[in-house]
Amino acid sequence: MTDASNTTTVNTDATKIMGGTGEPIIEVRGMDKFFGDFQALTNIDMVVGKQEVVVVIGPSGSGKSTLIRCINRLERHDRGTIIVDGIELSDDVRNIQEIRRETGMVFQSFNLFPHLTVLENITLAPRNVRGVPKAQAEAHAMELLERVKIPQQANKYPGQMSGGQQQRVAIARTLAMRPKVVLFDEPTSALDPEMVKEVLDTMKDLALEGMTMICVTHEMGFAREVGDRVVFMADGMIVEVGSPEHFFTTPQEERTKLFLSQIL
């Protein structure tokens, strides 16, 4: 959160870390992504620092989701390199598993497992992927539920909870794997307005505790308050990058201005 940046202007270089400890944890270089003939991402260069909070914004279809989904291999990138915590993402299954263990992801539609209770949702991966003993996994899960402020829901099924609660469980489930990075893909877009705040507060706490985060979101208040850096994308390219205050006050690119005028 400490503003290590001394950039005064907004530019197009997404490889400059602007917060956290300053050491890189995710490096994306020259990445292209195609869906058939359609190029969804073009020549993406981006570096994210440890404990940095990067907010990705952009119009619908600009490739924000695709970008973060490439980082944990939910989509396979076609060109360029992606390095997460020193591991290069390749077709090697072990590398993929390794990277997925280090990166958590929170989805727009929560994607909790409906047939498992909240507690089982949270302890499943630690027990099966990391081999954590059941008692220990459950103790950790209760701690996390405490942290997202719903400890009394542990035995419920996801379907018995509100959207906001479900998303907080999804965050707890992600944290249970003790990831080094958490990727958020519009975590509040599917929520009723009155529940957005509880999820944003949880994310804010997480950022304050020093978690590295990449957040795709339309919550500009969150971006301003919590983000170390804002990355604006359009048509599969990174168009403009800057610290929140510069980005929102002195955008340079026409497309950025247009987008901001529409959304603010």
Binding site: N72, Q97, M105, N111, F113, L124, V129, A170
Partner: peptide, 24 residues
Amino acid sequence: GQTEAAQALGLSPGAMQRMIVLPQ
């Protein structure tokens, strides 16, 4: 979304089928 969540958590393909996909 179910398989994606399972993959994102690092479950192996076998564990994903056994614990997430097949039960549902």
